[in-house]
Each structure stands twice: as structure tokens, then as C-alpha cells.
């Protein structure tokens, strides 16, 4: 069963074509990693899947249901999608616990006590229980991003979208965030993630997609795309990543 199917997606901003005839399939419990240079359209693809941007053509299916239908209830769709942004976007006026329980309580109508219990369980699992009552501005960047990830899975989404969740972080903080993603992956959470961390991509990816100018130029298991790329563009990109010291 495929959680996500993207067919012939097109998206442009004014006269700038950002996603060009892109198709993508994500089977349940698998991780698809998007790699590609800056501006290749990774964030835009994720935003389109989450219906934050309207698409120009093509279709998107979540659990076999077309969500690119303009008639669809966007809020209902988003109940099944978790998204984490590069810049965390925690709500600064709420404690960590309130950030996490907001959607379960307001959107999913879980009781307050149950939502808090469940949130505390996850916080404990990821060593953040002592931060439950803190406000986001008192947390390190890595802690904030981990909370943001916990917040996005608190609603038990079918699919998690992660957009460069480590690129705003100091190198020392990157690992604590990546380890939480690895844990979620081994829990069986289906995810699509954009990243510049090739080592991490190799570890979690069931499929790696290399994007160039809004299209997938090469796709396959990490052992193939990252370790033994076939296309000239992929080789070129990976060589530049390697020179930047990120492989």
C-alpha cells in the first residue's frame, strides 16, 4: 500500500517553473529522501504535498485519496500529515507541553489528560521530560527542533514531511535531531525528508531521489544513488557535497 503518490506534478512561481512533471511513490513505513542543490525544489515539493502551496497541474494522493482536489477539506488532510520546518516554528507563547498538545486537544478532540500523558511519554522517550514546562526561547536549537518533531507526530500522522530539519543547527546538535528521526523510522513511520546530510540519508533512506530543476533525475536505494550514482548530474552534485565536507 502506498501512503503517498505524486503524479506529474507541476508548480511554478510567476514564470519560474519550480516543479516540472515530477512523480513520486512512497510505500507505507518507508522513508524517501530528497537530495539536490539549493533551489532544486525540495521545499516546494513538500509544501505542495502539505497543501501549503497550490499546484499548477498533476495530482497528489494520500492513502489512495486525491488530496489535490480543490473540493477537499484541507484541515482534514492535514490531520494525516505531519510537517517539520527548517526553522522549527514552535509557538513562543506556549510551553513545550502546550505546543505538543495543542493539535491533539483542539483538532483531534483528545482529552486534555490523555494528550498530556501521551506527550509526556514521548518527551520522556526522547529525554526532554524536564523541558515540558519550559518556553521555547529557553531551549537550545536542537531541543527546539526535537520538540517540533514530537509536536508533528503527536497527532499520529500517516506521513511525516521533514524539510531540512538540521540545517539551522550547530553540527554538534545535528545528531540528537537525526537520532529522533531514525527512531521514528524504526517505529515504522512513513516519511519524506529533504536533507543535505548524505550520511544520514544513507542510513534512513529506503529510496533516495536526486532532484534537479524540479525533476527527479535519479532515484533508487542509497547504495546506488549516493554510493554509485549513474547520472552525470548526480555525480557532479555529490562531488560538490563531498568537497564541502558533508559526505
Amino acid at each position: 500500500m502506498n501512503v503517498l503518490e505524486v503524479k506529474n506534478l507541476r508548480k511554478s512561481f510567476e514564470d519560474h517553473l519550480v516543479i516540472n512533471d515530477l512523480s513520486l511513490t512512497v510505500p507505507d513505513h518507508t522513508a524517501t529522501v530528497l537530495i539536490g542543490s539549493s533551489g532544486s525544489g525540495k521545499s516546494t515539493l513538500l509544501r505542495c504535498i502539505n497543501l501549503l502551496d497550490t499546484i499548477d497541474d498533476g495530482s497528489i494522493y494520500l492513502d489512495g485519496k486525491e488530496i489535490s482536489d480543490p473540493e477537499i477539506n484541507v484541515d482534514e488532510v492535514r490531520k494525516n500529515l505531519g510537517m517539520v520546518f527548517q526553522s522549527f516554528n514552535l509557538f513562543p507563547h506556549m510551553s513545550v507541553l502546550d505546543n505538543i498538545t495543542l493539535s491533539p486537544i483542539r483538532v483531534h478532540k483528545v482529552s486534555k489528560t490523555q494528550a498530556r500523558d501521551e506527550a509526556m511519554t514521548v518527551l520522556r522517550r526522547f529525554d526532554l521530560a524536564d523541558k515540558a514546562d519550559q518556553f521555547p526561547d529557553r531551549l537550545s536549537g536542537g531541543q527546539q527542533q526535537r520538540v517540533a518533531i514530537i509536536r508533528s507526530i503527536a497527532v499520529k500522522p500517516r506521513l511525516l514531511l521533514l524539510d531540512e530539519v538540521t540545517s539551522a543547527l550547530d553540527p554538534v546538535l545535528v545528531n540528537e535531531v537525526l537520532s529522533i528521526v531514525r527512531d521514528l523510522k524504526s517505529d515504522g513511520m512513513a516519511m519524506v525528508l529533504a536533507t543535505h546530510e548524505m550520511g544520514f540519508a544513507t542510513q534512513v533512506a529506503d529510496e533516495v531521489c536526486f532532484l534537479k530543476d524540479g525533476n527527479i533525475v535519479e532515484r533508487g536505494p542509497a547504495s546506488q544513488v549516493i554510493s554509485a550514482p549513474q547520472q552525470a548530474e548526480t555525480k557532479d552534485f555529490l562531488r560538490r557535497v563531498h568537497e564541502a565536507g558533508r559526505l
Binding site: 501549503l52 484541515d75 516554528n89 509557538f91 493539535s103 483542539r106 483538532v107 497527532v155
Partner: peptide
């Protein structure tokens, strides 16, 4: 981005206004 984060959590636009935007 605050609005985007709230909407991506499934909050409706009035819930986003009430719980996320207005208090700030």
C-alpha cells in the same frame, strides 16, 4: 511561518487565529 506551522498541524484558520496568532 507561525500560521503555516499551525495550519500544518491541522488547525483551522479560526483556530490558528485564536490559539496561535492572537495571543502573540
Amino acid at each position: 511561518s507561525q500560521r503555516a506551522a499551525a495550519r500544518s498541524l491541522g488547525l483551522s484558520s479560526s483556530q490558528t487565529m485564536r490559539h496561535v496568532v492572537l495571543p502573540q
